[in-house]
């Protein structure tokens, strides 16, 4: 039996009503969508990072890429400004350009799907010295290779680090993985709820198994994850008792690096 008590506790954390895991109560990087999610050496991918700051204390976002073959980030040999960026989000988002050196092409003969990792570190002002070091040119880049060591030196609240794999591939463009396309099957401009719950249905275009993850800054979705079945998924959101306007997010993941994000706002009637 051993650890099964614990494991069963995790499985049992669902039930009718809003699931607390779906409620955004603190600063969090909720999504990184790389377009395209699979690239060839010498190509670029644009990573769009979405950061939710429920308490609106302001936030700085450090983004960087790391291709680690066991000896740290290959990018560390390059000037920092080529593979790191510090930005303030605009409409909750920042972008990072993922450049893949053409020199990696020979490696793909040995490792067909070589991942590079896109990191996004969001911090409330003053909490992350590494951001200040990069802005002031004091960083060397080696401190970004071991993210566990980096996070050990940072506070657990007011800081959020997220990562996504972008796969380097030598496959033909039409054979590479693409991001899923999730189309709302409802009128977004009429997202005004007058009921206790709201059902959001999406039509998803993708040839892989996509899972939808609902998040909200108030209330909550019934399930942290919903499988897309027959090209569609429905997520049920439960309204809060005392907040009129709520931001809703539904992230889509195909499990192979492909991702999408839908954002919307619900205004409850007086």
């Amino acid at each position: 039996m051993r650890g099964l008590w614990l494991l069963s506790g995790v499985l049992l954390a669902c039930g009718p009503g809003p699931n607390p895991e779906t409620r955004l109560t603190e600063l969090r990087v909720i999504q990184i969508v790389a377009e395209p999610p699979e690239v060839a050496p010498g190509e670029l991918s644009i990573a769009t990072v979405t950061v939710v700051d429920p308490e609106e204390r302001g936030v700085e976002v450090l983004t960087w890429t790391c291709t680690d073959l066991g000896d740290g980030c290959l990018e560390a040999e390059l000037p920092l400004e080529l593979w790191t960026r510090v930005q303030s989000p605009v409409d909750e988002q920042v972008e990072h350009i993922v450049g893949v050196p053409g020199e990696l092409a020979p490696l793909l003969e040995e490792i067909p799907a070589l991942p590079t990792t896109v990191y996004a570190l969001a911090c409330e002002p003053g909490l992350c010295p590494v951001i200040d070091d990069i802005v002031r040119g004091r960083a060397t880049g080696t401190e970004l290779a071991d993210v566990d060591a980096l996070m050990r030196g940072l506070p657990i609240t007011g800081v959020s680090l997220a990562s996504r794999f972008v796969f380097l591939s030598s496959a033909a463009p039409e054979e590479r993985n693409a991001n899923p396309v999730a189309t709302p099957d409802f009128l977004e401009e009429r997202l005004i709820s007058d009921a206790d719950s709201l059902k959001l249905r999406f039509v998803v275009d993708d040839d892989t198994d996509v899972v939808a993850y609902g998040l909200a800054d108030a209330g909550g979705f019934s399930m942290p994850a919903e499988d897309v079945v027959d090209g569609a998924v429905e997520c049920e959101w439960f309204a809060p008792k005392n907040q009129r306007q709520t931001r809703l997010y539904v992230a889509f993941e195909d499990g192979e690096g492909g991702a999408a994000l839908w954002r919307g706002t619900v205004t409850l009637p007086e």
């Binding site: 680090l161 997220a162 990562s163 996504r164 992230a251």
Partner: peptide, 11 residues
């Protein structure tokens, strides 16, 4: 556990 990171592919 002194901190955490969020791996998005597996959420």
């Amino acid at each position: 556990v002194v901190n955490r990171r969020y791996e998005l592919t597996s959420r």
